[in-house]
Amino acid sequence: MLEVAGLSVLYGKHRALDQADLSVGAGEIVVILGANGAGKSSLLRAVAGLLPAAPGAKVMLSGRPLVGLPAHAIVEAGLALVPEGRAIFGDLTVRENLLLGAFARRARGEETRNRARVLALFPRLAERLGQTARTMSGGEQQMVAIGRALMSAPDLLLLDEPSLGLSPLLCSELFRALERIRGDGISVLLVEQNARKSLAVADRGYLIENGRIVGSGRAADLAGDPAVQRAYLGGR
């Protein structure tokens, strides 16, 4: 599905991401764990085309090269990003946000079905279609952001810290939603601080430190690894 090789991101001289390799298989949920400033957002943003990748990088989505494509073309190729900070259209209504989610040509045919799916996944949105997105609670805004991304009929969904600022209850709901999204045939790559809950739903995980991928493995193994427990699970 997604193959990333030798991906680096530079901010001036600062190397925020250094030769990252990773992959996401079809139907997989993959989580990236790492401390603040490790380079997680830089990785997702570079894959989504919001940041230029340093020369030599290879990013393939279902065999199609993405490096150098503008962000809007990458959405058309089947990759949707829910960025850190959500980036919903605050001045527009929930309905308009979802409508714009399906702006991609690839999404038009499936629009009605995807909309029904999104509203089934987040029933709260169905009640708030006319509300200005900015006036919604943080958790509701996250639903708008994920719903909007799903409206683009992606093959792969990228999420940057989706559980940020959510109550434990809402957080559990969110991870359940991710499993349902995967059930609909969409692969998921997410960056998370909540290692416990994200490893519980993920198939595999990567560990990232100072811009380098320093470990990877099956989610269950990572959750049981003492080093991972010390670093990310606040553990014993």
């Binding site: 989504a48 919001l50 809007h72 959405v75 058309e76 259209f89 714009l100 702006f103």
Partner: peptide
């Protein structure tokens, strides 16, 4: 709506394939 979306947030607009 897409035109207005660009006015609201051009980065977010790119993320919905505009």
């Amino acid at each position: 709506t897409a035109v207005r979306a660009v006015a609201v947030d051009p980065v977010a607009a790119e993320l919905v394939a505009i």
